[in-house]
Amino acid sequence: MSDRAKAARFQELHRRPEPLLLPNPWDVGTARLLAGLGFEALATTSLGVSNTHGRHRASRQELLDNCRAIDAATPLPVNADLENCFADDPADAARMIEDACAHGAVGASIEDATGGRRAPIYDFGLAVDRVRAAVETARTLPVPFVLTARAENLLYGVDDLDDTIRRLQAFEEAGADVLYAPGLRTLEQMRTVVASVTKPVNVVMGFADPSITLDQLGEIGVRRVSIGGALSRLALRSFMTGAREMREGRFGFVADIAPMSDLLPAFSR
């Protein structure tokens, strides 16, 4: 499938009434497994990439290289997790959007988190300027690109839903295609956010009440559901559980390993 066809398909998936399930692989193997399970699009995870490199944060180039690898692994559209685009300046941040497209992404996100401890969230005006610059760049790309704007308050100790919504509304006005506030936990919080904007809202279930179902999310108008680094963390937890058993001289974990018959169909493509 061509990049333009992937981009058109990704936009179409955001327009239908039911939510788009957007899982987050972290390498070629997990991308192919998810495609084999019938998912319709994929999203990269910066945490998953960081985990594979054994660090707290992946580099700019590592995220782009991972995007290219996942895009090449399957015919599915790919959305790129770009953190804060590795730049404070709006024009510099927007260049990351262009680079993500060049590495196969047909959508990407920009955050208002600074990556710093003293001031973890960009001032309102700068945050909006960064989204506006990213949108302007996205509109110049050779494919119809889906730009997601993220308000990170809830992940960085700013427990202020009103300010989060204010930011999302400003990002919508700046032209963002999808709005995203990671850290929403309850269905009521999600309903409030969805009702406050008109563009599609992404909810990440890695931080939410796990009893919430996809049907419930669809009923309140959520248009996209991702999982962030949760699948990577789930895999690492299983790895650590097995490794601890082995260190203790026990091997019961081998009874739970994936059969090769589940892996080979995806890996032999």
Score class of each variant (00 low, 15 high):
Ala69Pro: 03
Glu152Gly: 08
Ala108Gln: 00
Ala80Thr: 03
Leu63Cys: 14
Arg224Ser: 08
Ser50Leu: 08
Arg4Gly: 08
Leu63Glu: 06
Ser46Arg: 08
Ala133Thr: 02
Tyr156Pro: 05
Ile227Arg: 00
Ala243Gln: 11
Pro259His: 13
Val146Asp: 00
Arg4Asn: 13
Arg9Met: 09
Ala8Leu: 14
Ala127Tyr: 08
Arg167Glu: 05
Pro17Val: 01
Asp112Ile: 03
Leu161Met: 11
Ala174Glu: 03
Gly249Ile: 07
Thr114Leu: 10
Glu62Trp: 07
Asn153Val: 10
Leu13Glu: 00
Ala266Asn: 11
Pro144Ala: 07
Ala108Ser: 06
Met1Cys: 04
Gly221Ser: 12
Phe239Ile: 12
Pro25Thr: 02
Arg132Tyr: 05
Tyr122Glu: 06
Ala134His: 06
Leu126Tyr: 02
Asn66Leu: 02
Leu64Met: 10
Ala266Phe: 06
Val128Tyr: 02
Ser268His: 11
Pro77Glu: 13
Gly249Lys: 09
Thr140Ala: 12
Phe145Asn: 03
Pro77Leu: 10
Leu82Pro: 00
Pro120Asn: 07
Arg60Asp: 11
Arg132Lys: 15
Asp129Ala: 15
Leu187His: 03
Thr140Tyr: 05
Gly116Glu: 12
Ser196Val: 11
Leu154Ala: 12
Ser46Lys: 08
Arg166Gln: 13
Val197Tyr: 04
Ala31Gly: 13
Glu12Val: 03
Thr52Leu: 15
Leu82Gln: 01
Gly228His: 11
Ala181Met: 03
Glu40Met: 05
